[in-house]
Nucleic acid binder design. Structure first.
Lengths: 375, 375
DNA sequence: GCGCATTACTGATGCGCATTAACGAGAACT
DNA sequence: AGTTCTCGTTAATGCGCATCAGTAATGCGC
C-alpha cells in the first residue's frame, strides 16, 4: 500500500475509495444552521430536555436524518474515555476444533449479558494455535485495549495477570482462582453441589462411597472432594465411609478388579468428577458394564458435573449441572461492576441437582451379579 | 500540558476508581525522556529504519513494555490508521442457546485465520436477544470501530449494510449475497456440489429424481436447485427426470402418500436440501420409515449438506460436506485483503462429496415393500 | 431602567494517536 | 568561515465527538 506518497492530506491514508464520506456532525450543523456542539447535544438527547427549543431540535434532527448521519464510534469512544469493549481471553483457542472442549456454554451467557449491558466483546486470539501475536510475553497486554477482560482456562500466565491486576485493570477469571491475590473471579459452588449429591445418595441408603477424582489440585477438583467429604459428615457417616481415589488415567486405572474390590468392601455408590474428557465417568461406566453390574440396581453412580456430549443418548447420570451460561453472565456482571468502579461481590453460582437415572437404593443384600446387565 | 484551568475534569466521566489508568504514549514518552511523537513513530516501526538512534529506540521500547503500553484502538482508528480489529456481526445471536444453530464451525475458521494474521476479533452484540443496542437503526454503525467486519446470517438489514459498503468500509458477508451490489462475500459452491451428488446418483443407475427444497429463494436454496438440474443435464437426462418440490413445512408435506406417488412415477432417488433444522431430511427419512422403504435398497437418499447434529449416530447420509471452517478462514482472508486496500477475488469454496450410506443402485424392479424396514 | 436569574445556544478544548513541517546540531562541502 | 546537507527529534495539527465555560437574549421584580 502506498505510504507517504502524497505529501498532503494526512488522514485517511489509503483505505477508502469513498468520495462522499459520510457526514460529520459539523455538516449536520451547517445544514441545520447551528453549531456542532448543538448537534452533539441534541443527538445525545440529554435529560436536561428543555435546554433547546423544539424548533432547533427539529431542525437538527431533520438535517441529521436527511444527511444520513451516523456517529463515528471511534470518535465517540475516544471522547468518552471508554470503549464499551470487554475482552475475552482464553489460553487455549476460544473455538477449538472439537466443540466439546469449547467454552461455548459460557460464551452464551457472556454474550447475552454483554449485549444486555451494551458491551461488545473482543476475542483475543493471542493464545490460539500458533497465532501471530501468540508467544510474546506481552500477549496479555493487548487486553488493555478493552475496558476490562474476562479470562478463561486453566493455564493463564500468572505473572502477567498479576501485573494487570496490580495496575487496576478490571479482570475477572471464570472459575475459582484464589492463588492470585486480588484477582476477581466467579465460580460454581462445587462444594455445596457435591455435598448435596452425596446427601441424596445417603438418603437413598448408601453408606459407603468412592470418589474418583483427577490427580492434580485444581480448585474444581479440590472443591468437589471437599463437598464429597462434607456430604458424608452431614449424613452422619464416619471417616471410612468415603474413599477418595485419585487417578491420572482412569481408563486403565478403574479396572473391573478394583471395582470388585470396592464392592467387596461394601461400597455401593460411586461418584466421579467431571473432567474435560469425561474420562472418570467413562471408566466407571465401562468397569460396571464389564463387571456385569446393573445400574442402579446393583450400584449407584453419580457424576459431579455434566456428562460428555457424546454420551447424551445414554442414561442421564445422577449428579449436578453446572450453570455455565449463568456463570458466563455472572462473570460479565462482575466485570461490568469493576469497570464502573464499584467493587461488587459476586457470590458463587449454585449448581442444580440432577436426579438422573443412575442412582437408586443400594441392594439390601450384596450378591455377585451373574449375567451381563445393561444400564 | 497543564491548561490554564484545571478544576473541570471533563474526560473520564465517573467511570474509574482506577488509580492507574492504562498508560498513554505521552507517559511512555515521559518515562523514556522523549516526545510523544517519537514514541508514536518508534512504536509504528516505520521502515525508514535509520530515522532513530538505537539508543532512543531501545529506551522507548523498554519504557513501553515496562508500562504495559497498549494503543487505544479508538484513537488509532480516529487518527485514520488500523487497529488490528476485525468485527464479527451476526444478526442472530452469535452464540445461540442451542448450539446446533450456531456459527460455531465458521467461527473456528475465523478465529484461526484471524489469529494467524494478527487480528483480534470484535463480536458485536448489537443483534442478540434483546440486547441494549439492539434495535437502533445505527446498530450496524458500531462496526466502524473495527478495521473491517464480517457479517453472518440471513437477515442483515440491507439498507444499513449498503451504507457501509458505499462508504468504502471493508465488509464481507459469509454466504452468497448478490443482491447487495458491491458487497463482498464468500460462499460454498453449492451448484457444483449439487451437480456432483446428482451425478453420482445417476452413475449408480438412477433415472428419476426428486429434490425437496425450501420455499424461499435464498441463494443457498437456489444454487442447490441449479446444481440438481445441471446434474440431470450432465447425466444426459431430459427434463422430467427431475421434480423440484418446494415445501415450507416438510414435516406435514412429505407424506407417505406423496412418497408413494413419486415411487409410482418411477422416482428412485430423493435429494433433500440442508436446512437450519434439517426438516426436509427428517421428513424424508420419516416418510421412508413409515412407508417401509429400505434405504438404500428400495430407494436412495441424498442430503445436500450436513445432517443435523442430533442425527449423528444414524446412517451417514450420502451428500456433501460444507467446509464451514474453511469458509470462515476464507472470509477472513478476503476481509484482510479489503482492509489492506487490495481487492482480491475470493473464489467459491468447494464442498466435498460424502459417499455416505444412503445411496445405492436403484432396484431393478420396483416392488411395493411389504415389511417394516430399517434404515 | 437597572440588577439578576433563566433560557438557548456557541466557542473552545481535549480525548489518544498519526502525521508532517520544522528545528537544532553536527558533518561535509565550497 | 560560511553554506548546504543530513540526521535525529520535536512542536503542531487534526481526526469526530462530548463536554463545559461562556455569552447573548430574554424575562422579571422593583
Amino acid at each position: 500500500m502506498q505510504e507517504s506518497k502524497k505529501p498532503s492530506r494526512r488522514g485517511r491514508p489509503a483505505a477508502q475509495g469513498a468520495r462522499t464520506s459520510r457526514p460529520r456532525q459539523a455538516e449536520v450543523a451547517r445544514a441545520a444552521g447551528v453549531s456542532q456542539a448543538t448537534v452533539s447535544l441534541i443527538l445525545a438527547d440529554k435529560k436536561d430536555g428543555a435546554a433547546f427549543s423544539d424548533e432547533t431540535r427539529r431542525k437538527v434532527l431533520d438535517a441529521a436524518r436527511e444527511l444520513g448521519y451516523v456517529p463515528d464510534p471511534a470518535a465517540r469512544r475516544l471522547a468518552a474515555a471508554r470503549n464499551n469493549l470487554l475482552g475475552v481471553f482464553s489460553f487455549t483457542a476460544t473455538f477449538p476444533t472439537e466443540m466439546q472442549h469449547s467454552y461455548y456454554p459460557f460464551l452464551v451467557g457472556v454474550e447475552q449479558e454483554a449485549a444486555a449491558r451494551g458491551y461488545d466483546l473482543v476475542l483475543f486470539t493471542g493464545s490460539s494455535s500458533g497465532g501471530a501475536g501468540a508467544a510474546g510475553p506481552d500477549a496479555l497486554g493487548r487486553v488493555r485495549l478493552a475496558d476490562g477482560c474476562l479470562f478463561l482456562g486453566r493455564h493463564i500466565p500468572t505473572q502477567e495477570l498479576r501485573r494487570l491486576v496490580a495496575d487496576g485493570f478490571p479482570a475477572v477469571h471464570l472459575g475459582r482462582r484464589d492463588e492470585l491475590e486480588g484477582l476477581a473471579w466467579v465460580g460454581a459452588d462445587y462444594v455445596s453441589a457435591g455435598r448435596e449429591v452425596v446427601g441424596k445418595l445417603a438418603d437413598l441408603g448408601h453408606r459407603r462411597f468412592v470418589l474418583i477424582r483427577e490427580d492434580d489440585d485444581a480448585p474444581a477438583s479440590t472443591d468437589r472432594e471437599q463437598g464429597f467429604l462434607e456430604g458424608l459428615t452431614a449424613a452422619g457417616l464416619d471417616h471410612d465411609a468415603g474413599t477418595v481415589h485419585r487417578s491420572a488415567d482412569p481408563r486403565r486405572d478403574i479396572t473391573p478388579e478394583r471395582l470388585r474390590g470396592w464392592l467387596a468392601e461394601g461400597v455401593t455408590a460411586f461418584v466421579a468428577e467431571e473432567t474435560d474428557t469425561g474420562a472418570a465417568w467413562r471408566a466407571l461406566r465401562a468397569a460396571c458394564r464389564t463387571t456385569g453390574l446393573q445400574v442402579p440396581r446393583d450400584a449407584s453412580l453419580a457424576l459431579l458435573g455434566s456428562p460428555p456430549a457424546d454420551l447424551s443418548h445414554e442414561a442421564v447420570p445422577t449428579g449436578f449441572d453446572i450453570p455455565r451460561t449463568q456463570l458466563g453472565a455472572a462473570a460479565v456482571r462482575l466485570l461490568a461492576s469493576l469497570v464502573a468502579g464499584e467493587d461488587a461481590e459476586e457470590p458463587l453460582v449454585t449448581c442444580t441437582f440432577r436426579p438422573g437415572e443412575t442412582a437408586g437404593p443400594p441392594p439390601s443384600v450384596r450378591q455377585q451379579p451373574q449375567a451381563q446387565g445393561d444400564m
